[in-house]
């Protein structure tokens, strides 16, 4: 049962690494310096969220977390595309 405890510990370690990655993305999102950096960090942030939910699905052996990941992928894509379009057209400086 050595392999099973390796699996348990590596899934827990992976979750901690993803949470650290989300913290890095959140730091960049708060610090900026410009709006495009924040949008880029938001993109990285939701991808980290997707990976976190996938590892959580492996941890609980529950197959239905997959659907949450699919929804986050869809909504995140639309959000980033809309924000990029806003930066391109909706800016008074243009």
């Amino acid at each position: 049962m050595m392999a099973h405890s390796i699996l348990i510990w590596s899934v827990a370690t992976a979750e901690m690494m993803i949470v650290l990655a989300m913290a890095c993305a959140a730091y960049r999102m708060l610090k900026g310096p410009r709006a495009q950096d924040r949008v880029l960090a938001l993109d990285a942030f939701y991808v980290c969220g997707m990976i976190l939910i996938l590892t959580f699905g492996i941890e609980t052996s529950d197959i239905f977390y997959f659907e949450a990941v699919l929804v986050i992928a869809l909504v995140g894509f639309v959000a980033t595309a809309a924000l990029a379009k806003f930066l391109m057209r909706g800016e008074p400086i243009e």
């Binding site: 899934v11 992976a14 690494m17 993803i18 650290l20 990655a21 890095c24 730091y27 960049r28």
Partner: peptide, 17 residues
Amino acid sequence: LVLLGAALTLIGTIGLV
């Protein structure tokens, strides 16, 4: 695979910072 994926994501966001 899980550790590799998580480590690559972490490296990516460290680069972002």
